[in-house]
Simulated assay, not measured.
Amino acid sequence: MDTHIYTADDLDAAAKDIVEGKLVSFPTETVYGLGADATNEDAVKKVYAAKGRPSDNPLIVHVDSEEMVEEYAMPLSDEAKSLIKTFWPGPLTIIFNLKDNVLSKTVTGGLDTAAFRNPNNDLTLSLIKKAGVPIVGPSANTSGKPSPTIAMHVYHDLKGKIAGILDDGECQFGVESTVLDMSTDQPAILRPGAISAEQIQEVIHKPVLDERVHVADAQVPKAPGMKYKHYAPSAQVYIVDSPKDFEEAAKWAAEQDDKVGVMATDAVLNNLHFSNNVESFSLGSDVLSASHSLFAGLRHFDNESDVKSILAQGFSNDGIGEAYMNRLNKSAGQKHFNK
């Protein structure tokens, strides 16, 4: 199968692929998604096959409006409507209870709920509108690998497996959306992202729980990223907890026989002398730029380098740092550099 690179001028062709049950990767403000008609079970099954994704891992359903959500979800609460008005389009995914028999269990992982998102990308919103159907959209990468933030990341993983990639340049945020469960009386964040619990609480005027837990093998996760290892390059990632620990980390790297990758802010990289077996990747100036560049850095070392280990800078869990550390811990398998 040829994989076409589509631009805005090719929107009709990309929408035609979706309607015909083919797979098209699409851009969002977070990462690139792998799109298929959410109402076509055979098309959705192709998403799992292309990614090598476990079929009990539910898929996020991308919509172009609140009205499209209402076609599938049970009546929305006033709180849910306020969240939609405040944060959509944007990096907030909301889990709702579904009407009976409106979406295949292949989409929901067998659950009676589904996660909906209205992405802040004009090209993708136009794609959904032209196709006339909601579009499932897990990250457009091989399952478990770092998420794609440019079209070429998608092409590297999925060329020959999907019909096309709608290219709209680099993604704005670089980490996936916040996932908020509104299917129960107590709202809960299942995956942190750019929208914080504090921002959500200001809108709905009630506490938001943090329900990020590891899901056992026999359980079905309610949201993506809760059960399986995610975001991991081939090299082992080690989290360096603070900038002052990089001095010891640099010494450790110099002692390694194999090449070592280092992902850190410019302040760290400029203040240390690394040995010749170290390749560096800048995370910019702060945690915001680091969140934007995290997946790009992991993919750089996975696709374009031969490092065997990666030292990555950690940040505090405040604000966007919570989302950054959530993804970094998953990519590292919770492993930290020990002096």
Rank of each mutant, 00 (worst) to 15 (best):
L11K: 05
L103P: 00
S82A: 15
G35Q: 05
S55N: 14
A50V: 07
K22Y: 13
L83H: 01
I84H: 00
V61S: 02
V31I: 14
E29C: 11
K46V: 09
I84K: 00
G52W: 06
F96Y: 15
K46G: 11
L103N: 02
S77G: 12
Y48W: 09
N40Q: 10
S55A: 15
A38M: 04
D17C: 12
G35N: 08
K51P: 06
D64I: 05
P27A: 07
K46S: 12
D12W: 09
I60P: 00
S104N: 11
K45I: 12
H62P: 02
L103S: 06
K99W: 08
K22G: 06
A80C: 08
A49Y: 13
H62D: 00
D100K: 15
E67Y: 08
K85W: 08
L59K: 02
P27T: 09
S65N: 06
A80P: 01
P27D: 07
D100Y: 12
G90A: 06
E20C: 14
G52Q: 09
A50N: 07
L23P: 04
N57C: 09
K51W: 06
D100R: 14
M68K: 11
S104Y: 08
D78K: 13
T93D: 05
H62S: 03
E79D: 15
Y48T: 07
L59P: 11
L76H: 03
V31K: 00
E41S: 10
G90P: 10
D78C: 03
M68D: 09
V69T: 10
P91F: 10
S55W: 11
D12N: 15
E67M: 10
V24L: 08
V19L: 13
N57V: 08
G33D: 02
D42Y: 12
S65D: 08
M68W: 03
D64R: 12
T86P: 07
K81D: 12
L83Q: 00
